[in-house]
Design a protein around this nucleic acid. Structure first.
Length: 350
DNA sequence: AAATCGTGGCT
DNA sequence: TAGCCAAGATT
């Protein structure tokens, strides 16, 4: 596998959290990037990473920030429990380790939001430990190198074991990143570029011309549809009514446009309007907002009303969780993408 | 241990 | 277009 490190030295992608080959990166930056990169593309992460690092240059700074500031800065990146755990973890590192990240896989994995992959990634990349982070890229590369026919997710344990046999004692961090670069750019899910692969001569799948068929995967359950209503209340002084979601669960801790709970079937408009958060002249905005989550598809019907600045909220709006946010401040609010879509739809001139 | 948890880009 | 996919963790 020396060819892989040689390839990495030549072709390595420049990324904001990376340092020169052979060097150890700043643990805080590695951790921050790895949390953001969980199930998220490099392209989506880069601007968020830059903003976070600029605003909170150290773990201590992040630990001292209000949670809502962190959630607002994370808005749009998805999987919001990551943001809550990020904040929790920063506090734990400051309180338990004086602001210095621990260096072993075992200690790292005890921290909130750090699982097997991330613990190994930080240990290898930031501390030079001979650890083996196994993500989707590595699973794919290893399945092909060893021609593992067992399907995912069953094969995960075996793929981890095989991956660990490849990790060198020196430059484990570079090796891990090389495997991920290989998976991202050469050993891709579809149409892998075996002809220019630095480890083609070591690859069992390539030898049989079947790289693209591996790894095998079990079928996924289909996505159910859910439907709901959302009430965009605009106050006469230019504010929008928003509500804080519960800490746990979908979009936990984020802000939302008030409305009844989403369901499997659409209730009559008449019933929906009874659950409006404010008394008002509610108008149904033409069209719907469709948003696809990981495990269901949501279709939302949006109502809009212009209400007095001192309008009182109804009991079922859960007034304690509600707040009026000026339209000019929405960009900096802890609003997930689906809620931004709903607000944009309500404000579109139709 | 199977379900839950976002979003945007690509084919 | 509709599915697939991305540097997974938590319960």
């Amino acid at each position: 596998m020396d060819a892989l490190l040689a390839w990495y030295d030549e072709e390595r992608r420049e990324l904001p959290w990376r340092v020169a080959p052979g060097k150890r990166a700043n643990p805080y930056r590695v951790w921050l990037s790895e949390i953001m990169l969980q199930q998220t593309t490099v392209k989506a992460v880069i601007p968020y990473y830059q903003r976070f690092l600029h605003r909170w240059p150290t773990v201590k700074a992040l630990a001292a920030a209000p949670l809502d500031d962190v959630l607002a800065a994370w808005a749009g990146l998805g999987y919001y429990s990551r943001a809550r755990n990020l904040h929790k973890c920063a506090i734990a590192v400051v309180e338990q380790f004086g602001g210095k990240f621990p260096s072993t896989v075992a200690e790292l994995q005890k921290l909130p939001g750090i699982g097997p992959y991330t613990a190994n990634a930080i240990a290898a990349i930031a501390f030079g430990e001979a650890a083996t982070p196994v993500d989707g890229n590595v699973e794919r590369v290893v399945a092909r190198l060893f021609s593992v026919r067992q399907p995912l997710p069953t094969a995960k344990t075996e793929l981890k074991r095989l991956a660990a046999t490849l990790t060198p004692d020196r430059r484990a961090g570079d090796f891990a990143q090389a495997m991920m670069d290989l998976g991202a750019g050469i050993c891709t899910p579809r149409r892998p570029s075996c002809l220019v692969c630095p480890v083609q001569s070591d690859c069992a799948a390539a030898a049989h011309g079947m790289a693209e068929t591996l790894p095998m995967k079990l079928g996924k359950a289909e996505r159910p549809n859910r439907v709901g209503f959302a009430f965009v209340a605009l106050s006469e002084d230019g504010r929008v009514l928003l509500r804080r979601r519960p800490e746990a669960g979908l979009l936990g801790g984020m802000l939302e446009v008030p409305g009844p709970a989403w369901g499997d079937e659409l209730p009559p408009r008449k019933d929906a309007l009874r659950s409006a958060p404010v008394r008002g002249d509610w108008w149904e905005v033409p069209g719907t907002v469709v948003h696809v989550f990981t495990h269901f598809r949501l279709e939302v019907i949006v109502f809009r009303a212009l209400v007095p600045a001192d309008a009182s909220l109804t009991f079922w709006a859960e007034p304690d969780r509600c707040q009026w946010v000026a339209r000019r401040d929405l960009h900096a609010a802890a609003l997930p993408s689906v809620m931004r879509k709903i607000i944009a739809h309500a404000l579109s001139e139709n």
